[in-house]
Nucleic acid binder design. Sequence first.
DNA 1: GTAAGCTGTAATCTTAAATCTTACAGGATG
DNA 2: CATCCTGTAAGATTTAAGATTACAGCTTAC
Lengths: 146, 146
Amino acid sequence: MQISKKCSVALHCLVFIHEYGAQQKVTSELLSLSTGCNPVTIRGLMSALKKAGLVTIPFGTGGAQLALPPEQIDLYSVCRAVEPDALEKLMGVHGSPSPLCPVGRNIRAVLERSYEPLREDLKASLKKIKLRQIVDAYHEAAQSER
Amino acid sequence: MQISKKCSVALHCLVFIHEYGAQQKVTSELLSLSTGCNPVTIRGLMSALKKAGLVTIPFGTGGAQLALPPEQIDLYSVCRAVEPDALEKLMGVHGSPSPLCPVGRNIRAVLERSYEPLREDLKASLKKIKLRQIVDAYHEAAQSER
DNA sequence: GTAAGCTGTAATCTTAAATCTTACAGGATG
DNA sequence: CATCCTGTAAGATTTAAGATTACAGCTTAC
């Protein structure tokens, strides 16, 4: 379980782009060096963010930019972009309960229904957190580094 | 990503115990048949629930019972019992960002801090859901089965 | 008092999921 | 037209989760 590291890597990339996108061409190669992930993995993530309208990436020439100001990018958009079914998979349900048992026959539907509020609440929590806050927290951390 | 299936299997067991615990001796063997999981896996889960004070299991003789009424058992207790660090792992952070990059050096701490509200919110959501509701939902589902 | 039926737990094997790697087609730029 | 990108697919690799096997310890029934 876990909303995978993809989301964290994507945020890393977005912060990086916010910080350096104006000064230099941010390529998948560069992001791979900063994140420690494979360039192909990065390209996959960035491609997803592009499709979701969060970044712009000129095809052919490269160099990613934020498509929206950081106060308009929230964690929910990022998660959904890079991992569309993260919320659905939040609480896993075991796959092979016995159809011979009354509990086994019904447990899946019962649990799915019971978990629904969790998904809704988490979705709301994710929407509340903006890239702005993360960038600000980064500035603070980078500041106190000296 | 994902709060694992353990939690779902544990809930399955708790519902089963609630329904049948009074009538028959609920053993790991029986629960394994209903859930489709291995008896050893079940014993591990039940042992964790026992340590958390959610069920009682006479050692030697067997036969699990709920230690609390279903309105006093919430999802948070169950999750924490069977998977103590589920909340910590909710949002994974990538492990090897470059220490040579300012973003890479700070991203871990920044993200951990930014994710904190998510964990708190989810914890609150989990606490709101009681075994009572799940048992009720089960009764409803089992009813309409006929 | 001993045989049968449980639990608790460790060690190993298996299986499934995530990630990396390699490879290549296609657009843009100088 | 050579170079530097992105976008994807296919296969290999790594890692985490579960299953399996095995066995010691407690309890009750006979």
